[in-house]
Computed example of a mutant assay.
Amino acid sequence: MQGLAQRVTALRPDLVNGDATFGELAWNWGRGHGDEGPNWRHRLWFSGGAPVAWAWARLPREAADGAYLSYQVHPGHAGLVDAVIDWYDATAAGLERTVLPSAADAFALERWAAHGYTADLAALGEHGSWTQLNERDLTDVAPPRLPDGYRFRTADEAGPEATAAAHAAAWGSSTYTADTYRGVRRAPGYRGDLHLLVEAADGTMAASTVLWLDEPNRTAEFEPLGTHPEHRRRGLARAMLLHGMRLARAAGATQATVACLGAPGHPQARELYHGTGFRELTRDAPLIRPGSTGPAGGTG
């Protein structure tokens, strides 16, 4: 799946779906989503021994909730999107179904519409959940400046417990533990020297991010990035981005990418990334098909 992400990135980076980037796949799989059994269903399509499409459906634990699909189709095999849709409809039959194709993928959007999927107006609202992918080149990256009392560390230096605590605090997660982090370390493409943290004077890991280096495409992806609530608005995230980009450039990358929520009601991350030179590359186009039960009505 990561290999397909790399091949699509090389051909048409605007067609890489938000949940299908090299780093996002590694992050999600490493956190244990691949082990969640019947609630995560997978299907891959191959040509000449190489995957040219995949689908990853998340089914709800409660029937009243909806299903969600992440997927990717190689642009040279675009017609497989119909097979992806058919598989998803069969796998999540009767449920409300959502999906986030790239807004640049005109062919896929046409095929989803032909199968009864329409714009998800709730997701497209003021505080909607769609994301945009941002990019910038690494030819001119300003030096980072941390406030007094803070210093850069790496996950290799900090160790699993402190690294996991940094992410859990930044994202308010009660399920991200040192064991979860060890799963991330096993994900293809992970490098502990590119898993960056900012340490406060008292030893607290105040911010963290993982850089995923796609060597064939010479691209580095920040995923995820977050700051401890008690250390926000001090410029830590900006400094960590600049530090990360300079490390990525030293590792051979020429481009950096980062995703963020794109709806108007979520300006903070977007303003941070735009303030460090990133610009929108592509964005999600949230789609929905009502299920046969529940408040959405309709037929499955």
Rank of each mutant, 00 (worst) to 15 (best):
E110L: 14
P188F: 06
L80I: 09
L146D: 04
A50V: 14
E96G: 14
L4S: 03
P224Q: 02
W27R: 06
W56I: 00
P51S: 12
P295E: 04
R97W: 07
W45P: 06
L146Y: 05
A55P: 10
G275S: 06
L121D: 13
P290E: 05
R246W: 08
T9L: 12
R31P: 00
G125K: 09
D140Q: 13
A67E: 11
S292R: 14
H42T: 10
L138Q: 08
D35S: 13
P143K: 05
G3S: 12
H74D: 15
Q2P: 04
A200T: 01
Q268R: 13
F22Q: 01
A103G: 12
W130F: 15
M240Y: 09
G48V: 06
A263T: 04
G116W: 12
F107Y: 15
G203N: 03
Q2W: 05
E199T: 04
L15A: 02
P13Y: 02
W56Q: 14
G149R: 05
Q255T: 15
L69M: 10
A83N: 13
H127M: 03
H127R: 15
D156L: 07
D202L: 04
L124F: 07
G18Q: 07
A162P: 01
R153W: 02
P295F: 06
E96P: 11
V99F: 10
G128R: 08
R58L: 11
A78Y: 09
V8Y: 08
D14K: 07
A20W: 03
G34K: 06
P38E: 15
T227M: 09
W112V: 05
R246A: 12
H167G: 00
F22E: 04
A10Y: 03
T254S: 14
H243F: 11
P144H: 07
L146S: 04
R12N: 10
L241H: 05
L247T: 07
L11S: 12
W87A: 09
V52T: 07
T180Q: 01
D137G: 13
T177Q: 01
L261G: 15
T180L: 05
L213C: 02
D105A: 07
S174G: 14
W112K: 05
V141C: 10
L69E: 11
D14G: 01
H228S: 04
R7M: 09
H33A: 02
A20D: 10
L138W: 10
L25G: 00
D179Y: 00
F107Q: 12
W87R: 10
R232S: 04
G244F: 08
L121M: 13
L4C: 03
T131V: 14
D137M: 03
P13D: 01
